[in-house]
Design a protein around this nucleic acid. Sequence first.
DNA 1: GTCATCATGTAAGCCGTTACATGATTGC
DNA 2: GCAATCATGTAACGGCTTACATGATGAC
Lengths: 206, 206
Amino acid sequence: MLELAVLGLLKEQPLHGYELKKRLGDTLGFLWGVSYGSLYPALRRLERAGAVEVVEPGDEAPAPPMPATGSLSGEAAAARVRRLAKPGRRNRKAYRLTERGEQMFLELLTGDTAPGTDDERAFALKLAFCRYLPRDARMALLEQRRADLVARLHRARGSRAGQDRYALSLLEHGRKSTERDLEWVDELIAAERAAAAEASQEGATA
Amino acid sequence: MLELAVLGLLKEQPLHGYELKKRLGDTLGFLWGVSYGSLYPALRRLERAGAVEVVEPGDEAPAPPMPATGSLSGEAAAARVRRLAKPGRRNRKAYRLTERGEQMFLELLTGDTAPGTDDERAFALKLAFCRYLPRDARMALLEQRRADLVARLHRARGSRAGQDRYALSLLEHGRKSTERDLEWVDELIAAERAAAAEASQEGATA
DNA sequence: GTCATCATGTAAGCCGTTACATGATTGC
DNA sequence: GCAATCATGTAACGGCTTACATGATGAC
C-alpha cells in the first residue's frame, strides 16, 4: 500500500523522500501517516525494482514524454519547481517514476488488495488515485467495493454480539455506517455511468 | 489489541483456543479476524505473564470467587458448559482469566492505545467491553474518543487533497463519516450522563 | 557558532499474517 | 478404516513502528 501511495504521488511530479513524507501526512494524511523507517526502504525497494529512478537536480523540468500538460494549478506548481530546483541541497535525492513504475502503479491500483491490509484504507487510497484509471477499471473498482460492502452488511445481520447496551449500539452504528458507505459508492457508480453515457454520446455526435 | 480481545472473552467464561478464534471471528468478527498463528502465541504470552491459566476439564464449573451470578442467558450458557465439559477431548486446553489477568484487562481497556494501532478498531473493541468499566472510566473513554474525532475534523478542514472529483468526494465522505461518528459518541455520552444522574438520584433517595 | 530545520538512513522490535505439520474425535 | 472436523502448534515472513545515528543548510 505504501508503494501505491508513493508511486501515485510521484506520478504527479518528482519528489524526494522528505517531501514525500510530508505529502503522505498532509494531502493523504486522512489516510495515512508514514515514518521514515518505512518510507526510505520503500523507495529503495522501488528503485531496485526499476519503478523509480533518481533524478539529478535541474534534470526534472524537461519531463521527457509529457509536453507540459499544465495540470496542477500553475501558480503553486511554479513555486514548487522553484523550491525543488533550488541548488545547494546536495544530499537530496528526488525520485521520478519510470515507465516500469507507471505500469506497476496501474497493477497495484487495479489488482487485488494484498491480504492483511485494511480494506477501508486500501479502497480510499485507490479511489484517491483512480482518476488515472480507464473508465472500465474504475467501474470495476467501485463495483468490487460495492460487493464487499454488501457482503459485510449481510454478515452484520447474522451476528449477535453480546446483549449489552454498548455492544448493541456499536453493532448498530457499524451497520448504519456501512449502509451509508454503500449509498456513497452507489452515487459514485451512478456518476460514473452518467459520465460514460455522456462520453459515448459525444463520440457518436462527433 | 489481540490480548484485550482475548482477555475480554475469557472474562465471560473459560474457553480454549479454537473456540476463542471462532468467537473472535463471530461475535467480534465485524472488528476482527485472527489466525491461529497469532492466537496461540498470544495465549502462551498471556499464560507466561500470569494473566490466564489452564483449567482442567471439569474444573471450570465451581468458579472460585463468583457465586454463580447467572449472567449470560442460562439456556445457552448451560449448553455451552455441557459442550465444554464433555470428556474425551484430551488435548484441549481451556484458559481461565486469573486475578492478574483481570487487572491487565482493565489496564488495557483504560490505558492509551498502543501507537501504530488502528484507532477505529481500538475504540470499537474497547467499547465492546466497556460494560466492565466503572462509570467514570467509561466516560473518560468516550470523552477521549470525542476529542480524537474533533481533532480529526479539524485536520480534515485544513487539507486540500488534489482537486479531482474522486479525491474531493473521498474527503467529503470522510468528513461526513467523522461528523456522524461524533454525533454517535455524543449520544453515548448523553446516555451515560443520564444513567449517572439516575443512579445518583436513587442513591440520594435510598 | 549554534540552533532549527531539512534530509537520509539503519536497527530492533512488534504484531500480525500464511503455510505447514501434527494429531485426536466423531460419524459413517 | 476413512474423511471431516476439532484442536494445537511452529516457521518464515511482511510491513510498519520507534529510536537512534548522521550530516548539510540557512538564519541569526
